[in-house]
């Protein structure tokens, strides 16, 4: 078994190209759970722990978040809290400070766990992932990056290097509905971000991936309860829901209508 610790993105993607079976380790929280449970085995590991360039966080203009930036840093960073409060709120909603001290932005996207908090907010914020490989780099909107349960459009030699979030022009809200303990993962999550008078509403944690319906959002009349209700009903109708310990499909359908409506009224005020 090997564990390598490259110090540059170039070295990582070369190692990845040479050994596509090797597993990339970022924060290692999700991987740690899988490995401990015996659900993931690998001969070779490529750890990002020494790749300094992936830990950069820049907030001049758009927000540029290196893939190895920890959740906790986004939650506490003054600029992020002030200018991208929705992003700060969604990362703050993840698990516990202990997990957020380790979990990374690249990791949460590469895992594509349906019950994670950040993806819906990143989609609502029109965030884009920058992806590198020996073949070059490309940019993919987060809504295209996550394709389903624990699946992404990443090729096997690719690495998420950073996430770029445009500077928002309007309010943002993140609503996390918990149905059990207050430290639970979401039964539903709704992110709504207003940008130049239009809204992007994204519903997460109820289905295999976050859902955004631009045509429904286009009908929004800010501050109008009926409009919010109609959009909520439209979202509720169109999503295909899952059942889990945090709620049945029927329950989720019902509360998504409510939570979307509430989110829209919140960003109106």
């Amino acid at each position: 078994m090997t564990w390598i610790q490259p110090t540059s993105v170039d070295a990582v993607v070369r190692a990845r190209a040479e050994n596509p079976e090797a597993i990339i380790v970022a924060g290692g929280t999700f991987l740690g759970i899988l490995v401990r449970a015996g659900m993931l085995e690998a001969d070779d590991w490529i750890s990002l722990q020494d790749v300094r360039e992936l830990t950069r966080l820049q907030s001049l203009g758009d927000l540029s978040i290196g893939a190895m930036v920890r959740h906790r840093r986004l939650e506490l960073d003054e600029d992020v809290r002030g200018i991208w409060p929705g992003i700060a709120a969604a990362f703050r909603a993840v698990a516990s400070p202990r997990v957020r001290n380790v979990a990374t932005v690249g990791g949460v996207l590469a895992d594509a766990d349906y019950a994670s908090d950040p993806p819906s907010m990143l989609v609502a914020s029109r965030a884009v992932a920058e992806i590198a490989s020996v073949r070059g780099s490309r940019r993919v909107p987060i809504e295209e990056l996550i394709t389903g349960h624990y699946s992404t459009c990443l090729e096997e030699d690719e690495l998420i290097t950073r996430v770029i979030v445009p500077r928002p022009q309007g309010p943002a809200v993140y609503r996390k509905l918990r149905t059990r303990s207050q430290e639970d993962r979401p039964s539903s999550s709704v992110a709504a971000v207003v940008h130049q008078g239009t809204v992007r509403v994204v519903v997460g944690a109820v289905s295999d991936r976050p859902h955004h319906f631009a045509d429904l959002c286009a009908t929004w009349r800010p501050g109008n309860e009926d409009s919010a209700r109609e959009i909520g009903a439209g979202y509720a109708e169109r999503i295909e829901y899952i059942d889990d310990n945090r709620g049945s499909a029927a329950y989720r359908r019902r509360v998504v209508a409510v939570e979307v409506r509430r989110a829209l009224m919140q960003v109106s005020s």
Binding site: T179, R180, S181, D184
Partner: peptide
């Protein structure tokens, strides 16, 4: 409010602290 062991054909389906919640400091 939330503690319940669930079974499918006799097999416990939530034998872990992620799928079975207990009260936290937040509760």
């Amino acid at each position: 409010l939330f503690e319940e062991l669930q079974f499918s054909d006799g097999q416990m389906t939530n034998p872990n602290l992620s799928d079975y919640n207990i009260a936290s400091a937040l509760d």
